[in-house]
Design a protein around this nucleic acid. Structure first.
Length: 518
RNA sequence: GAGCCCGUAGCUCAGCUGGUAGAGCAACGCCCUUUUAAGGCGUGGGUCCUGGGUUCGAAUCCCAGCGGGCUCACCA
């Protein structure tokens, strides 16, 4: 537990202080405190009230908090309490709290939790302060607080010891408060529109609904291998078959992939499905949704991300093919393609080579479906430019095994992705509901798997059977909640919006470092 | 998985053309009854991430490892 002799010594010292506190008749670990107000409520009610008014009609309060600063001055002293991200100063003087009370004050340390009762006043410098008449000890900090001015700056420590980060860096706390508001806003948005919130299996025998490598686990009693889900998609559509016309789920997905500023192995996904809707309906709904949650979380649709001003209320829509043409690099060996050339692409290989020649990274293997190449070209050419909210629609069928084809262009599907800040935050389509076609698509995916694509979709016979009972025309969408939270809070890294991001283990501590004596 | 950068006191950071460590905050002692990054006087605190190597001598130079950050790849 201890990182050093310093910490061990401090811990021992604080234990001795706790013993002193008990000698004063206080409990070392009391079990409650009857506060009349939170610190935020005190600020809310009396934050603007003038000194004269406070002196005229004495306001008494009982409040609790953690000591974040303490300034002793002989026979008096100040401290700053913090609670729920709010701060309030207290003033303790010998002649107000008595010998016992002041002895307790002198035994307090930074980080301790205390409760105080007293009346409000303003100091000479105008700061709203509780003039303490009774001091109650609540809990001791046995370890040293971070530096009071800079807070905890070390990113590794902030992620590993989020419990310190949260009280030491109020900016960090604010991110997670906003994240909670985001979740609440999402639920309100869908609840108000008649969607039912559901929970589907996170342990699945077939990891389907997305292209990703899964985590594997094992159930002992059934002696059965299971995958942690990579998406809830196939279960949610089974529910629409079952007559739950509008469903949504907000929960974790798990993907056994690399970690980056935009990827955490477990991440939160919103998926929703709506019977009788197609992908155009979902485009409208998506714009409305993003606008709504931005207003609920920030009170504005404007946000700053990676030094870019983004308006989450202003949207552009482009087909994937239009986006490729629009953002085609001027300096590539190939001239900007015409839109028609992307309808029947026979120049793909040359394009890939020319784009690679100017430094674009594009996966390409001989014999891969044309649609796969086009999708990769799109990501290489256009993605970085999609900073303002943009809907990219019409995707190649080859990379969309669960989407419905366009009636007039069977190589393309009714699908769109939502791009903001240069990365994808959502993916939606008119759901493929023809069981025969779905079975054929799964078989195509199996062929891709044979060619070595580990992320190609697996066959799910039961899902095809569900479709055979009849899935109404349905639109479905998934939105990455962590990424949306990044945009709304201006966080550059996904780790800044996940309370406990996955970290490598630190070196094992020797077992002898127990805080207990003997 | 690859490239670049970082790791010094509990925290925030100096020191890095090699001569075995400093500051501020925090801690401890003393003074101070309206301070607020309170102030004053004094004290203690470090396997300089780990392990090798070069050298008379390494926090500093070299190699390897561990942990972290960023970029790229995979993906959302």
């Amino acid at each position: 537990m201890f990182d050093s002799e310093f910490e061990q010594n401090l811990f021992d010292l604080r234990r001795a202080k706790l013993a002193e506190i008990e000698k004063l008749g206080e409990s070392a670990y009391p079990n409650r405190f009857a506060a009349t107000h939170t610190l935020g409520a005190v600020r809310g009610h009396w934050g603007e009230v003038q000194a004269a008014e406070l002196d005229a009609g004495r306001v008494t309060v009982a409040v609790a908090g953690r000591i974040m600063a303490i300034r002793a001055q002989g026979k008096a002293g100040f401290a700053t309490l913090q609670q729920e991200g709010q701060r309030l100063q207290i003033y303790v003087r010998l002649d107000a709290v008595g010998e016992q009370g002041f002895a307790l004050y002198k035994l307090l340390d930074l980080g301790d939790h205390i409760g105080v009762a007293g009346y409000l006043f303003r100091t000479r410098t105008g700061e709203l302060t509780v003039h303490v008449e009774r001091l109650t000890f609540l809990s001791k900090a046995m370890l040293a607080m971070p530096e009071k001015y800079h807070g905890l700056a070390d990113l590794e420590l902030r992620y590993r010891q989020r419990y310190v980060d949260l009280f030491a860096n109020l900016d960090s706390r604010e991110v997670f408060v906003k994240r909670a508001r985001l979740l609440k806003a999402l639920r309100r948005f869908f609840d108000e529109r008649g969607y039912l919130e559901v929970e589907t299996p996170m342990m699945q025998q077939i990891a389907g609904g997305a292209a990703a490598r899964p985590f594997k686990t094992h159930h002992n009693a059934l002696d059965m291998d299971l995958y942690l889900r990579i998406a809830p998609e196939l279960y949610l559509k089974r529910l629409v078959v079952g007559g739950l016309d509008r469903v949504y789920e907000i929960n974790r997905n798990f993907r056994n992939e690399g970690i980056s500023t935009q990827h955490n192995p477990e991440f939160t996904m919103l998926e929703f499905y709506q019977a009788y809707a197609n992908y155009h309906d979902l485009m409208d709904l998506t714009e409305e949704l993003i606008r709504f949650v931005a207003m609920e979380v920030n009170g504005t649709t404007l946000t700053t991300f990676n030094e870019a001003e983004i308006d989450l209320g202003k949207w552009e829509r482009l087909t994937m093919r239009e986006a490729i043409v629009k953002w085609w690099p001027e300096n590539s060996g190939s001239p900007r393609p015409a839109l028609e050339e992307l309808h029947a692409p026979d120049k793909l290989r040359g394009w890939v080579e020319d784009l690679r020649a100017i430094g674009k990274q594009i996966d390409y293997t001989d014999g891969e479906p044309a649609g796969k190449t086009i999708a990769n070209i799109f990501e290489a050419v256009a993605e970085d430019f999609l900073i303002q909210p943009t809907i990219i629609y019409e995707f190649p069928t080859a990379v969309s095994p669960l989407s419905k084809q366009k009636p007039d262009e069977p190589d393309w599907v009714e699908r769109f992705e939502v791009y903001i800040g240069g990365f994808e935050i959502g993916n939606a389509f008119s759901e493929l509901n023809d069981p025969v076609e779905q079975h054929r698509r799964f078989e195509q995916q199996l062929a891709e798997r044979q060619r070595g694509d580990e992320e190609a979709h697996q066959m799910d016979e039961d899902y095809v059977r569900a479709l055979a009972y009849g899935l109404p025309p349905t639109g479905g969408e998934g939105i990455g909640i962590d990424r949306l939270a990044m945009l709304l809070t201006g966080s550059r890294s996904i780790r800044d919006v996940i309370l406990f991001p996955l970290m490598r283990p630190e070196k094992q501590e020797p077992a002898s470092s127990s805080p207990l004596p003997g």
